[in-house]
């Protein structure tokens, strides 16, 4: 049986004054031991090095390493199709991002009809998200074509075609885009993005979702 209490040890001083002195001596002895004996950390080093390499490989090899935040929460689905190599369009609560650049801002109005300003506003339910008409074709509210996004996608697609033609001249080019969309983005914005992507020449669409075993 392991004894942990000092009073249980044989020959331990019983007087309070003596006890304090003994404690001091005991601590000093432990400290001295710590200093003199080198700690064998080789095993921990091995584990940590393996863990580090594993994490580095996992993070760098996964192009769909989407980090959720308050502006981007993915919808859940039981779908089991892995992401493909494609042009990613990130749709957060604040902007449409292509190639790590904010291409078109997304407007947010609270349920009270006020523009979202603080982070707390974005957390509330009942917000309305939309794209301002100034970013649409002819500045028309009813238009589904987002001009800035169309230009950006066309440029990206032209570049991708050139790269593909150089690398695989015999294979036909597949214009695929993966839309990584926040769960609260309304159908109107999605339809506008999809329509614009279609106009840019993208014919295959994928929507990123978070895999969930429960539907």
């Amino acid at each position: 049986m392991a004894h942990t209490g000092r009073h249980e040890r044989p020959g331990h001083p019983e007087q309070p004054g003596e006890e304090i002195t003994f404690q001091k001596k005991e601590r000093a002895a432990i400290r001295g031991q710590e200093i003199n004996d080198s700690l064998n950390i080789n095993s921990i080093m091995d584990i940590m090095t393996i863990l580090l390499v594993f994490l580095l490989v996992s993070i760098t090899s996964d192009p769909w390493n989407v980090k959720p935040n308050q502006y981007l929460q993915l919808a859940t689905s039981t779908v089991d199709r892995p992401p493909e190599d494609s042009l990613a369009i990130l749709v957060t609560k604040r902007a449409i991002v292509v190639d790590n650049q904010d291409t078109v801002p997304i407007e947010c109005m609270t349920a009270g009809g006020r523009q979202c300003r603080s982070d707390d506003d974005y957390r509330k339910d009942g917000n309305r998200y939309f794209i301002d008409k100034t970013y649409k074709e002819d500045g028309a509210e009813s238009s589904f074509l987002i001009v800035n996004l169309l230009k950006k996608l066309t440029d990206k697609l032209d570049y991708a075609k050139e790269v593909h033609a150089g690398a695989n001249p015999n294979e036909p080019f597949k214009a695929i885009t993966t839309i990584i969309c926040d769960r609260d983005i309304p159908y109107r914005v999605i339809a506008e993005i999809v329509h614009t992507a279609g106009n840019a020449g993208i014919d295959q669409l994928r929507f990123a979702v978070m895999r969930n075993s429960r539907r």
């Binding site: 994490l55 994928r206 929507f207």
Partner: peptide, 23 residues
């Protein structure tokens, strides 16, 4: 290691294929 763990996603990202919309 904690920094990389914070960057690491513990969920799977999958994709749902959708055809282009018809107006």
């Amino acid at each position: 290691i904690p920094m990389l763990l914070a960057m690491f996603n513990f969920f799977e990202v999958k994709v749902q294929a959708v055809a282009a919309p018809k107006l």
